[in-house]
Design a protein around this nucleic acid. Structure first.
Lengths: 220, 220
DNA sequence: CGCAACATTGAGGAGACTCAAATTTTGTGG
DNA sequence: CCACAAAATTTGAGTCTCCTCAATGTTGCG
């Protein structure tokens, strides 16, 4: 549905920024293929990833209402993106109330995920944080058919995971070793496997309600 | 403007929950007077406050699009709230495109603040986290005239601050003593005073852009 | 005046960090 | 298909921020 709208451009990117904090905003990004993340930089140089995105995600729809970006977007691994001009978004919402509603809902769910991340970073230890994050990502991937049998392509590095969970890469590494030793997950190159859904959900005290997935929570 | 809409009810509350996670949603809350916060509970009982609210805030506008609440709302100290039925919200957005746009923008800014909080909790130490939080709250209060000369009524307890910053009350206490010793803030009962705006902004590496305040950032 | 909530203090422990180096994997070009 | 460089992962040792537990002041309110 989204792709039926006239998009501005399409491009492939290795691991580069797609949009930068502080830039004026004229269009939103649709992720066609690969992974991406949004992140903020603190003045001292450390990075906080605030969301991960997978194929089909309209990454920064909210930018349509803002003049300046408060965060950056970067590809993780290789990615394809399309650009949706804000003018198109507004024209569409003006014409179709249903789509306007859907866009608003998208923004609302975005906020719900941020709240859950806040709980994750603020109140869980490293083991729980990573378990929770893997639950979320695997479930979201599964909901678009990209995680059959608990296996998915997962180009996210341990440094990325550290920046998303508020930990250091070293500690992420040691914690993932525990997750593997406990037979909750395994990694083979860039492939991630969920070995024990139930255990992972418990380790991360994961409840998928906040994702508001249409097809529900088959795995939970 | 908002208060010209027909509201459902009004009530005063000591420190009780106004809305609970998991409840079905039929109306949104407008805070008329006092302070409130939104929070999530993790299964092990710890609490993460995800936002603070001050008079005039439409606290959970986003709930209009959701069937179930993913968080709770509680008053901090005494508070007055009005309830805005979702039906009224939808009728209004259907009739007035400008208000629909304003509502969506409200949701978008809400998300921007969550992203900044994620950076705060994930990437700053206790001293910076509290400094940043005080900057945000004082500036938001100032923008509605509730923090003249850097003084404001501030009924938020140290336990609340701990739940908002991902720290423990004990550590918040010790850190606030440092903020006071460094002459950045002072407290007198429930009154909070910003003694050194510049110092506080630097300590919290605070940049108010993410708040998208209409009247700008007089203090920064 | 007395209870309850809040703020403060102390001592000890643990999770996470820093720094630095080694090892493995990945990607690229010859 | 191999060699090399760059990136990512892994390991080790030592440190520090922040946490836990527990007790003691302090303030607000009925």
């Amino acid at each position: 549905m989204l792709l039926a709208l006239p998009v501005d451009d399409t491009s492939t990117l290795p691991r580069q920024p797609i949009a930068l904090e502080g830039e004026p905003l004229t269009r939103s990004c649709v992720l066609l293929d690969g992974f991406a993340c949004r992140y903020k930089l603190s003045p001292d140089g450390s990075r906080q990833i605030v969301s991960f995105h997978m194929p089909g995600d309209l990454i920064d729809l909210h930018s349509a209402l803002l003049k300046v970006a408060d965060h950056s977007i970067a590809a993780i691994g290789r990615a394809h993106v399309a650009y949706l001009p804000h003018a198109v978004i507004f024209e569409t919402t003006r014409r179709y109330a249903g789509i306007a509603h859907a866009f608003w809902l998208e923004t609302v769910i975005d906020g719900s995920i941020f709240r859950e991340w806040l709980l994750n970073v603020g109140r869980r230890d490293a083991y729980g944080r990573l378990a929770h994050l893997f639950c979320e990502l695997a479930l979201r991937l599964d909901s678009v058919g990209l995680c059959p049998n608990g296996r998915c392509q997962f180009p996210v590095t341990q440094t990325d995971l550290a920046d998303a969970t508020g930990l250091t890469p070293v500690h992420v590494n040691r914690t993932m070793q525990r997750l593997r030793a406990d037979k909750l997950i395994s990694t083979h190159g860039t492939e991630l496997r969920i070995l024990d859904w139930k255990g992972l959900i418990e380790a991360g005290s994961f409840d998928p309600t906040y994702l508001y997935l249409p097809n529900g929570d088959a795995r939970c």
